[in-house]
Measured scan of single mutants.
Amino acid sequence: KLPPGWEKRMFANGTVYYFNHITNASQFERPSG
Rank of each mutant, 00 (worst) to 15 (best):
R30Y: 14
T23M: 06
S26D: 04
L2M: 08
P31Q: 00
F11I: 06
P3S: 04
E29H: 10
T15D: 11
Y17G: 04
Y18E: 00
F28Q: 08
S32T: 14
R30P: 14
P3M: 04
P3E: 06
S26I: 15
Q27A: 07
T15W: 07
Q27R: 06
S32D: 14
M10Y: 14
N20V: 01
N24T: 06
K8M: 15
F28Y: 12
W6Y: 01
K8E: 15
Y18F: 08
W6Q: 00
N13H: 04
P4Q: 10
N20M: 01
G14N: 05
G14P: 00
P31E: 02
F19K: 03
M10H: 12
Y17H: 04
L2K: 05
M10I: 13
Y17A: 03
G33T: 13
P3R: 03
K1P: 15
L2E: 06
L2G: 02
E7V: 10
G14S: 03
I22T: 09
W6D: 01
A12T: 10
I22Y: 12
P31S: 00
P4N: 10
G14M: 04
I22P: 02
K8H: 07
Y17P: 01
F11Y: 15
V16L: 07
H21Y: 15
Y18I: 00
A25W: 08
G14A: 02
E7K: 04
S32E: 13
F11D: 15
E29M: 09
M10K: 10
Y17Q: 04
F28T: 11
E29F: 08
A12Y: 06
G14E: 03
A12M: 09
A12L: 10
V16A: 07
P31V: 01
H21N: 13
R9P: 02
N24K: 12
H21G: 07
M10A: 11
R30Q: 09
Y18V: 00
N24F: 10
N13E: 07
P4E: 13
R30L: 12
R30W: 13
G5H: 11
N24M: 13
E29G: 07
E7Y: 03
M10F: 14
Q27H: 05
N20G: 01
G5Q: 07
S26K: 10
T23D: 06
G14V: 01
A25R: 10
E29D: 11
R9S: 05
H21R: 11
N13G: 07
K1F: 13
F11M: 15
L2W: 04
N24H: 12
E7A: 05
V16K: 04
N13A: 04
A25L: 13
L2Y: 05
K1Q: 14
R9K: 12
H21Q: 10
H21A: 12
I22E: 11
A12Q: 11
G14D: 03
Y17W: 08
Y17M: 06
G14K: 03
G5D: 08
N13W: 05
T15P: 02
N20I: 02
E29P: 06
G5P: 11
R9W: 04
N13Q: 04
K8I: 15
V16E: 10
E7L: 04
R9N: 04
G33L: 13
T15S: 10
P3F: 02
Y18P: 01
A25N: 09
T23N: 07
E29Q: 10
F11V: 06
S26Q: 13
S32G: 13
N13M: 02
M10E: 14
T23H: 04
P3Q: 05
W6G: 00
K8A: 12
M10R: 09
Y17I: 09
E29R: 06
I22A: 08
R30F: 15
L2A: 03
G14R: 02
T15L: 11
E7M: 04
P31F: 01
Y17N: 01
K1H: 13
T23W: 05
F19H: 08
G5V: 04
N24L: 13
K1D: 15
P31R: 01
T23P: 00
N24Q: 13
S26H: 11
M10S: 11
E29L: 07
L2D: 06
P31L: 01
T15Y: 08
S26Y: 13
G33D: 13
P4T: 09
N24I: 05
W6H: 00
V16T: 10
W6M: 00
Y18G: 00
V16I: 14
E7H: 07
S26N: 07
I22V: 11
P4A: 11
A12I: 07
N24S: 10
G5L: 03
L2N: 02
G33Q: 12
K8Y: 09
